[in-house]
Amino acid sequence: MATDAALRRLLRLHRTEIAVAVDSAFPLLHALADHDVVPEDKFQETLHLKEKEGCPQAFHALLSWLLTQDSTAILDFWRVLFKDYNLERYGRLQPILDSFPKDVDLSQPRKGRKPPAVPKALVPPPRLPTKRKASEEARAAAPAALTPRGTASPGSQLKAKPPKKPESSAEQQRLPLGNGIQTMSASVQRAVAMSSGDVPGARGAVEGILIQQVFESGGSKKCIQVGGEFYTPSKFEDSGSGKNKARSSSGPKPLVRAKGAQGAAPGGGEARLGQQGSVPAPLALPSDPQLHQKNEDECAVCRDGGELICCDGCPRAFHLACLSPPLREIPSGTWRCSSCLQATVQEVQPRAEEPRPQEPPVETPLPPGLRSAGEEVRGPPGEPLAGMDTTLVYKHLPAPPSAAPLPGLDSSALHPLLCVGPEGQQNLAPGARCGVCGDGTDVLRCTHCAAAFHWRCHFPAGTSRPGTGLRCRSCSGDVTPAPVEGVLAPSPARLAPGPAKDDTASHEPALH
């Protein structure tokens, strides 16, 4: 009773807030009518008042009428009001819900409408889902798969039609296919003929059939049928067999079959498995989609049935006599038709004709302190090069084509190399640097090759510096006499390219 009084008091307290929050009759008014909170006449009256005075006034009048009803109607109103779709449509209802007392429970059932309790003993237990329907569909599909699609060729003596089998029958139906081979029951999904010589313990000319048996419980189990008994694959494991010639990621696949039913060829011909030897223990289905393919039931050349050999690369099948050149017997292992072999060759040939990528240039590290003349020119003028003790990398590039010797140069053309002071002394051009340390401070000019250098860098042994005729380390061993002091540049003949010694390969005349 306390809860009923509290709900009535809360409705009177929030009546105006609810009326202002509800700006549309749908969905709240319609939901109240659906849950029998508002009768039909009051529903029509509220809609009429909404058209006349507006939605807030109409709902305020409806809530005032609701306060005169019993506690069950008020409880049902609060339940409908706080439904998710009403809270989404009328956003101003959320503060009312947040301020609702926590001790007021809106989930209690309506009085007088409590459903009768059902004894637990009368409640049926839930049924577990079964796979009976899938099993029945598999039974119905198996006879259809064994139905012949056409008439065999005159040369083929193997013609068999499976008798119709009602689904209610649980007995196995067997077809006489000759040579002791028996087909599987209607619940078998796949059958492959297997030679009895590969099964340990088999006697006589009995041949087993590799099947997948579907049981009534819905589970499946792969086994071997020899005669009327089934054997699990673990009985046929043979770890010492060295003649297993397995197909790549293979499961067994029928390579020879008669049109209309699988079996042995007439005249004692023995149908073979995809792999010879003992049956392997793992009978998992292969991951290669080509091995799941269903080959055609007629020859791809003459479009006739009979004894066919199936290609492992495509769905086509052929007569042995229709092949070019014809085959006398079934080859062992994987067999592919000429079209598949030709496609494989065409895929391999473009790969062989692809040009080989060019090898990157060989990189040879230079000892610290040495650099090529090109690196000396590329440096920024007026700045010493940083990191001189790091190992430089010199790339061996292809030799350029031989060019004509340089033409003779006048001494005026070499004027930018040297600057003559007032006393006739050779001065260095701006930006000249030593080729060893890279520093341009207090550098000297070689009178023979006009290269800038430090005496301490080229002659670290402490050799005394002569007063005139300074030469760098590369030119100090040259027998050519030094030019007379005061000459602007060496003779043009000295600039012609010539053979250089091994220790002077990195010091070429550089223009500054």
Rank of each mutant, 00 (worst) to 15 (best):
P233H: 14
E137Y: 15
Q262R: 08
S156D: 09
T232E: 11
S107Y: 08
E207C: 05
Q157A: 12
G201W: 04
P116A: 07
A19V: 01
F100A: 03
F230P: 03
M194S: 05
L13H: 03
G263P: 08
V226R: 05
K131M: 02
R132L: 01
L32S: 01
V256E: 07
I18T: 01
E171I: 15
F26L: 01
L11R: 02
Q212D: 01
R8V: 01
G178T: 11
E53C: 15
M194K: 05
L81R: 01
Q262S: 08
I181T: 03
E88Q: 15
K259E: 06
L11A: 00
A121T: 03
L158M: 09
G251A: 08
S156N: 14
Q182L: 02
E136L: 06
P115K: 01
A160E: 01
G269D: 06
L87H: 00
A138G: 09
L11I: 03
D23H: 14
R127E: 03
K131P: 02
L175I: 06
C55L: 01
P148C: 14
L273Q: 15
S156C: 14
E17S: 01
F26S: 02
Q225A: 10
Q189C: 02
S169R: 06
A186I: 01
P143L: 11
V118G: 09
P115D: 02
S187D: 06
T16P: 01
E17T: 04
A19C: 05
D70S: 15
G240I: 05
F82H: 02
L7M: 04
V256F: 14
V22T: 01
K253G: 05
I211G: 06
K102M: 05
S169A: 07
G201M: 15
A205K: 12
Q94H: 08
Y90P: 02
G228L: 00
P27W: 09
E136S: 09
Q212P: 03
R132C: 01
L106Y: 13
Q213K: 10
R139V: 09
A261D: 06
A5E: 14
S241H: 05
K243M: 14
L28S: 00
Q57A: 13
D103E: 15
T130D: 03
P126V: 02
S249F: 06
R203K: 03
L128G: 15
G218H: 10
R257A: 09
S24V: 05
D84Q: 03
L97C: 02
K165I: 15
G227E: 03
V199I: 14
P162F: 14
A271D: 13
Q44I: 09
Q173I: 15
G267C: 11
T68C: 07
G218S: 07
P254E: 07
A6H: 05
L13I: 06
G260H: 13
E17V: 02
F82A: 00
K165C: 04
L49P: 01
K161W: 03
C223K: 05
A58W: 02
V20K: 00
G219E: 06
L47K: 00
A5Q: 07
V226M: 06
R149C: 07
R92L: 01
V123Y: 14
A25D: 03
L62H: 00
G268I: 12
P200F: 07
V118D: 04
S234K: 08
F236R: 04
L75H: 09
Q262M: 04
L97Q: 00
Q157I: 08
P39T: 13
R247F: 08
K164H: 13
F236S: 06
D238R: 03
A134R: 05
K114M: 09
F82C: 00
Q57G: 00
G269K: 11
A117L: 12
D23Q: 00
A145S: 14
Q182A: 15
K245I: 02
G204W: 02
S196I: 06
G260D: 07
I211D: 08
Q108C: 05
L10D: 04
G155Y: 12
T68D: 00
A265Y: 13
D36W: 06
I224Q: 02
K245H: 14
G180P: 00
Y231E: 06
V206T: 06
M184N: 02
L67D: 06
P109N: 00
R257V: 03
A202S: 08
